[in-house]
């Protein structure tokens, strides 16, 4: 076995010389696979199921990008990243796109040199407490012990919130969501705080979800979205517009069910442009004319992805809220395709 590693190293070193310096889009096409960084396991957003297939909302975005670029939604290599490793993995080129419920912040965008291509989930940090505690507002949490997942913006928000309200608390930092659940259920902490969507997902996995309540206060803005490396604008455009194609598809009523029918040609020029039957938008991105069609066919439009993975009929049971289309009073708003 040891020899093979030596050989592997040699081959890799040999390959490296040729691969250096190419643009991400060309890399992905040459490789035939998209390397997509995902969470190590958060039900609803990205987690392997019992058969080892990755499932989830963020995973759906990865599959859509792969379908748009390579025409095959399964041509994705899912690379699990922790809060600690995600940014280096992206910066060093190990992954092409990071779709790992990552909050868009100033310093990540500017200082760490990444580009957030959009927001696929508008979230905010909330608190979950056992009902038996009789707490109805986060303002009553003075002196509580709070479980947090380390390495996220939640730690900072938590510190800010308690300082602002002049309350004290004891943080219990925990590596993974599974361990946080264990601690919380055992009563090692009174409160569990993370993004409200994560709280809902966690609560859904409990034996008696009814015994726990999510407090009404949302203490932060957490726009979660896919991100790419700063500087490779062509690739950024591909990811951005693939995502917006999903959003626009919902707006115009393109679903995975009727997409074949619609791609035969419709009276709506916007739909035609998205599906590539009018004006070749794909060519401008360096993709096929049917790029958006493939992306939408991969897992459905934005609304379908939402409903299938985290919507009200799933165990996670999130309502659309801010993530509804702008026509329904939400924030999902795709720029025009023209």
């Amino acid at each position: 076995m040891k020899k093979s590693v030596i050989l592997g190293t040699l081959t890799v070193a040999g390959l490296a010389a040729g691969a250096a310096g190419a643009a991400t889009l060309d890399d992905v096409k040459a490789r035939g696979k998209l390397n997509c960084g995902v969470v190590t396991g958060l039900v609803g957003f990205g987690a392997p199921d019992a058969n080892g297939e990755w499932q989830g909302f963020d995973v759906g975005v990865c599959r859509a990008i792969a379908a748009a670029v390579l025409g095959d939604p399964t041509a994705v290599e899912f690379i699990p990243t922790t809060a600690k490793t995600r940014f280096t993995a992206l910066a060093s080129g190990e992954i092409d796109v990071l779709a790992r419920n990552t909050t868009w912040t100033f310093s990540r965008d500017v200082d760490l040199k990444f580009d957030f291509v959009g927001v696929n989930y508008y979230d905010g940090q909330g608190y979950m407490v056992p009902k038996a505690l009789g707490v109805s507002s986060a303002k009553e949490l003075d002196g509580a012990t709070v479980c947090i997942q380390t390495g996220t913006t939640t730690e900072l928000n938590l510190a800010d919130y308690f300082r602002k309200n002049n309350m004290s608390y004891q943080p219990v930092p925990i590596e993974t969501n599974a361990e946080a659940q264990q601690q919380y259920l055992a009563g090692a902490c009174d409160v569990y705080t993370t993004d409200a969507s994560g709280l809902a997902a966690t609560r859904a996995a409990f034996e008696n979800p009814g015994d726990h309540v999510v407090l009404p206060e949302i203490i932060s803005k957490e726009p979660l979205g896919p991100l790419v490396r700063h500087g490779d604008n062509d690739w950024g455009d591909v990811v951005r517009w693939t995502f917006y194609a999903l959003v626009a598809a919902e707006e115009y009523g393109i679903t995975s069910a009727n997409i074949e029918e619609l791609s035969a040609g419709t009276d709506n020029p916007e739909i035609n442009r998205i599906l590539g039957t009018e004006d070749n938008l794909g060519a401008m991105l360096g993709l096929d004319a049917g790029w958006a069609k493939n992306a939408i066919a991969a897992g459905g439009n934005y609304g379908e992805l939402f409903e299938k993975n985290i919507g009200e009929n799933t165990p996670i049971g999130l309502s659309r809220g801010l993530n509804a289309q702008w026509t329904d009073g939400g924030l999902m708003y795709a720029p025009p395709f023209r």
């Binding site: 890799v12 070193a13 490296a16 010389a17 691969a19 250096a20 310096g21 190419a22 600690k84 490793t85 280096t88 993995a89 910066a91 060093s92 080129g93 190990e94």
Partner: peptide
């Protein structure tokens, strides 16, 4: 986290 920075650009 770090080793990737010490390898030639583009290597993976």
């Amino acid at each position: 986290v770090v080793l990737a920075y010490f390898l030639p650009p583009g290597t993976n």
